[in-house]
Design a protein around this nucleic acid. Structure first.
Lengths: 360, 360
DNA sequence: TTGAAAGCGCTAACAC
DNA sequence: GTGTTAGCGCTTTCAA
C-alpha cells in the first residue's frame, strides 16, 4: 500500500488554499468555507484521487471507530450470524470490526492487549462459554473500556452480558415431551463435566432435570449421557444410550438432546439402530442450525435468537460511544423460540400404545 | 478507550532516558542500548503499564500489519473455515484482519475505499462468485495493492486467484454415478441463469453435461432443474423433478445435486415423496458441509478444500509483504476430495434390477 | 551508547 | 471565511 501518498497538503496546494480549509470541507464543516473554495478543494481532491488517511485522523481524534470482536470456538457455527449481525449495525454507523480468535484465556488476554494497542474503541467477546477466571475482564472494565459479552459464562453481575435462556428452553422442551405423555425421558447433554464447567451445558441439563422434578418424574441416571455438542458426540452418546437400554431391558420413550448438532448425530444413530423417530422414540432439541428443518424427520427444536444477540451487543457499544459511559451494566437474557416439527411426535396414548410394561 | 494515555515520553521521563532510547528497546534494537538503561526502561514500562500505540507506529512506518477481508454472502457457511484459516496463518505472523461485508459491487467498492483509507496492507476477497465487472479490481491491482481472490468469478488472468475445481468435481461425481451403472441422470443445478452468471454453478452444471457426453449418454433436459444452492431450493427443485417424472412416466435413476445444502433438501423431498435413497434413486453432491456424513442416508460427496484456500490466500499476501511484489500472479485451482458414503448406492445390475421399461 | 529533532497526515484552537 | 500552528505517539536519521 505504499504508493506515493496524496496528502491533505497536496490538495491544499493544488486548490490554492490552506490545509485547514481542506480539513474543514473534509469534515463537513462546510459552513465555514466559501462555496468557491469548497468547489476548488473538491476538484483538487478528485483530480489527485485524494483518500483521507484514517490512521492519521485516529491519531489526533483519539478514536478509531473500530471495535474488536474476540471469538473463541471459531468453528462454532453460532458465531457466523453473530458477526453478521454485529457488522450490520456497526457498518451503517461508520464503525469497523477487527476480528481476533482466542481459544483460551491466555490468547484472549493476548488478543485484548493487541487490539487495545490498535486503539479499538471497544470489544465484543463471543462465547468462551466456560467458567474461566475473568480477572482480565474485570481489569478491562475498571479501566473504563467498553465491552459486551455474548454467551459467556460469568457469575459477576458487573458486565454487559447477553445470554440465552438456556435453562428455560431446556425446561420447556422437556416439559413439551412430558405434556405429550412421556414419562421415561433420556437426554444427551453437552459437556457438563468440563473443567472449568460450561454454562450452557450445565443450564440445559438443569432445565431437563427441573422439568421432570416439577412433574414428579423420577430421573433415570443411566439415560443421561454426556457428549460434546458435536455430531459425532451425539452419535456415539446415542449408541451408548441404546446399549444401556438393551442392558436394562428398558429405555426412554423420549429424548432431550441438548444441541441440534448432536441431535443430527442422534437421528443418525437411531436410524442405524433401526429405530424410528418419533414412533419408537421422540426427540426434542435446541440450537440455531437451519438444518433442523430438513432432517428426516424434521427436528422439533427451540431456536436461539443469535442475530439478536449480535445486534444488541453492537447497539450497546454504539450507545456507549455516543451517549457516554452508562450508569449500570446491561444483563440481557434472550428467549428461544419453540419450533415444533416432526421429531417429537404427537401425544401418546398411555392406555393403548404400549405393551403392559408397568402396572401403571 | 480514552484513559489518560501513557506515552513513550512518560516512560522516558520515569526511566530518566530519552524517548529514542525507549523506542530502541521497544523495537528490539537493544544492542544499541546499555544493559542498565535497558533494565530501567523495562521497569518503567511495567510500572506505568505502558502499551505501545500501534496507530502512531503505523503512522510513521506506513504500514498497519492489517489485511482487509471482504466477504459477500456473509450467510454462506463457506466463509467460516476460510476466515478461520486466514486468521490462523495471519496471526502468528503478527498480522490482523479487518472484516467487511459487501453484497454487491457498489458496496464492495465502498468497502475497498474505506479499508484503504484505514491503510490496510492488502486484501482478500471472498466469493462474490458472479461474473461482475472487475474494473475496480484492475484499478486496485494497477495501483500495486496486494490482494487475492478466492472463489471469484473472473476471466482476467491477471489476479491472484484461488478457485476450486468445480467443473472437474462435478464431472467426477457424475462419472461415478455412470460407472455405477446409471444411464438416466438428473441434476439439481445451482443458479446458472443468474445475471451476471455464477461461475461455480455454471461449472458444476457443465461438468455434469460433459461427463454424460463423454460416456455417450443423452441428456434429458426435463431432468435438469435449476435451484439456488439453499435447502429450500433443493427441496422445491426435487419436487419439481418428481413432478416431471410423473408426467413423463419416466425419471432419472441417479441425481447429481450441485451443492450439499441443496442435497439435504433433496433427501428430504425424496423422503417425503416416499422414495428411498439410494434404492429408488442415487444421489451424489459436493460442498463443504460436515453435515453430509450425518444425513440419512449419508451423502456421497466431493469435499471442497476450504481451509486450504484461506491459508493459501493469507500466505500469498504474507510472502508479498516480506519478499516484495512478485513477478506474476498465482492462479491456483484446488481439487475436491471424493467421499463415497451411502447415498450413491452400489453398482446397479441392468439385467435384473428393473422391470422391463425398455427392450435394452 | 545515547539524545535531539524532524516528521508521518491530520485536526482544532486560535488568529486574522 | 481563511490561514497558521501546535500537537496526536511514535520512529529514525544524524550528532554528540
Amino acid at each position: 500500500m505504499r504508493r506515493k501518498i496524496v496528502t491533505i497538503r497536496d490538495v491544499a496546494l493544488l486548490a490554492g488554499v490552506s490545509v485547514s480549509t481542506v480539513s474543514h470541507v473534509l469534515n463537513g464543516n462546510a459552513q465555514h468555507v466559501g462555496a468557491i473554495k469548497r468547489a476548488r478543494v473538491q476538484q483538487a481532491m478528485d483530480e489527485l484521487r485524494y483518500r483521507p488517511n484514517a490512521i492519521a485522523r485516529s491519531m489526533v481524534k483519539q478514536t478509531t471507530a473500530t471495535i474488536g470482536v474476540i471469538i473463541t470456538e471459531i468453528d462454532n457455527p453460532l458465531f457466523i450470524p453473530v458477526i453478521a449481525s454485529v457488522e450490520s449495525v456497526l457498518s451503517p454507523a461508520g464503525y469497523h470490526m477487527v476480528l481476533a480468535s482466542a481459544r483460551d484465556i491466555e490468547s484472549e488476554i493476548q488478543a485484548i492487549e493487541t487490539l487495545r494497542s490498535q486503539q479499538v474503541d471497544g470489544f465484543i467477546f463471543m462465547s468462551l462459554s466456560l467458567y474461566y477466571p475473568v480477572d482480565h475482564l474485570v481489569y478491562l472494565r475498571d479501566e473504563g473500556v467498553p465491552f459486551v459479552l455474548i454467551n459467556r459464562s460469568v457469575k459477576d453481575e458487573q458486565f454487559n452480558l447477553i445470554n440465552w435462556a438456556d435453562e428455560q428452553a431446556a425446561y420447556d422442551a422437556t416439559e413439551h415431551l412430558i405434556n405429550l405423555g412421556h414419562r421415561h425421558l433420556g437426554t444427551i447433554s453437552g459437556p457438563v463435566f468440563n473443567d472449568p464447567p460450561r454454562r450452557s451445558a450445565m443450564e440445559r441439563h438443569h432445565g431437563w432435570l427441573r422439568a421432570q422434578s416439577d412433574h414428579g418424574i423420577t430421573v433415570q441416571p443411566a439415560w443421561a449421557i454426556v457428549a460434546d455438542y458435536t455430531y459425532e458426540g451425539g452419535y456415539r452418546a446415542t449408541q451408548e444410550l441404546l446399549l444401556a437400554k438393551q442392558q436394562m431391558q428398558s429405555g426412554p420413550t423420549a429424548l432431550f438432546v441438548a444441541s441440534d448438532m448432536m441431535a443430527i448425530g442422534t437421528l443418525k444413530a437411531l436410524h442405524d439402530a433401526g429405530m424410528q423417530v418419533p414412533r419408537d422414540i421422540a426427540v426434542m432439541t435446541m440450537g440455531d442450525s437451519p438444518f433442523t428443518a430438513y432432517t428426516v424427520p424434521a427436528l422439533s427444536t427451540f431456536e436461539l435468537p443469535v442475530a439478536e444477540a449480535g445486534q444488541l451487543a453492537a447497539q450497546i457499544l454504539l450507545d456507549w460511544f455516543t451517549q457516554g459511559s452508562p450508569d449500570g451494566f446491561q444483563q440481557v437474557t434472550l428467549n428461544l423460540t419453540k419450533q415444533i416439527r416432526e421429531s417429537c411426535g404427537a401425544k401418546i396414548d398411555h392406555t393403548a400404545s404400549k405393551p403392559p410394561l408397568s402396572p401403571h
